[in-house]
Design a protein around this nucleic acid. Structure first.
Lengths: 223, 223
DNA sequence: TAGCCGACCTGTGCA
DNA sequence: ATGCACAGGTCGGCT
């Protein structure tokens, strides 16, 4: 874990003004990127719109096989099927450690341990899109980002239960703290950001666990 | 956490010869007790009211940490965390061999292999209380006993499905083959426990909701 | 093969 | 408010 520099600033997001895509073009924007450290260029690996199961009680994220095999190969040599730990950094500089493994039963690649905490802290909901990037530098640092689902993304079963999503890290249920900037199209209200200027760091109270984590704010773009 | 033996104790001190409990009084009754061998005095170690999970498909019994560490220490020296086999004798003189180990992930002590057979043979159900005793003799023989949950222990959800519990060893579902001999006291009234019904709740709180119901016959003192 | 068993994991409630 | 214990799960290996 090292990686300290917490440049809590969303960078990840680059210009997303236009496109719905993270703003992180294949070439790592990582803009205001504080300083040079760690600010190497990033290549975008792949995105996945999370399913209800990915954010539900199964506590796992299925990585589409073609992407998994291309970017996160696992050696299946007999014994090593235990999976590995992947360290990914989010836009706030926080490092997330996930167990990544292959489930024979479903013939799929999954992120298990650690994933549910990410879902909670970011308040991920079905349809939201998570993005994986990798530094083009020598360190090959991995990054993870996410953005709300676009309004056009239709996901049956998911209700508009909470139209307003609390600021990710905040976890204030049902309370919409802030507001949406011009993003438009994206989720109805999705506030992300609201008052941004500041960053709050709050911890999600669920707590308890060991790596708990706090983190600074936002992710996708918060703001 | 101090909680050393809280309520569930009492017996610890033995003496309750009177009580119908387990039939195995501190002093090894071991009645039909085969011969005198092994009939040394016993000290009661601890009881546990089994949870729905303990008797369900998980095939394991969680041993409350404070009791596990006190009575069944495992050396965790680096590698030996493989667990050990514990041999416990029941009131009928039968020896049960259980695998006893520590689960790092949940930080808990469990009986795994062999446990499901015990559950089945004794027809254990949530709320029933299993008791661990140990010979005070040189052999330190371990014993295991159980008794139906007291009627006062309320465990919703369990139906009166089988009002009659089959004789433990027989395992004929729903078919009451015999019994209910004089064992008496054991269930309905459970007075012995009477108020002590309390003691049974070593933690039952969550318990599943199963209903009270039956009561049946015996075993604990398996007549 | 289906079920047991071993090892993991997490949410929750309580201390 | 925080950490711990554990009830209730999962998957995979083995038999």
């Amino acid at each position: 874990m090292l990686r300290k520099h917490t440049y809590c600033d969303e960078l990840q997001q680059g210009k997303r003004a236009l496109g719905p895509t993270y703003g992180t073009s294949p070439v790592a924007v990582h803009r205001h990127a504080i300083s040079g450290v760690g600010s190497a260029a990033r290549e975008h690996l792949f995105d996945k719109a999370v399913t209800p199961s990915d954010v539900g009680k199964l506590n796992r994220l299925v990585i589409p096989k073609q992407h998994a095999e291309k970017y996160f190969p696992l050696q299946i040599d007999g014994a090593a099927s235990k999976g590995i730990l992947l360290n990914l950094e989010d836009s706030g500089g926080k490092t997330w450690r996930f167990r990544y493994s292959y489930w024979n039963s479903s013939q799929s690649y999954v992120l298990t341990k650690g994933w549910s905490r990410f879902v909670k802290e970011k308040s991920l909901r079905a349809g939201d899109v998570v993005s994986f990037q990798r530094s083009t530098g020598l360190d090959r640092q991995l990054y993870i980002g996410w953005k709300p689902r676009s309004s056009s993304t239709f996901i049956p079963a998911v209700q508009a239960l909470h139209l307003a999503r609390p600021i990710p890290v905040m976890r204030l249920f049902g309370v919409n703290i802030a507001k949406v900037p011009g993003k438009t199209a994206s989720t109805p209200t999705h506030d992300e950001g609201g008052r941004n200027g500041e960053r709050w760091r709050c911890r999600s109270r669920s707590s308890g666990r060991r790596d708990a984590s706090e983190s600074c704010n936002v992710d996708c773009v918060r703001r």
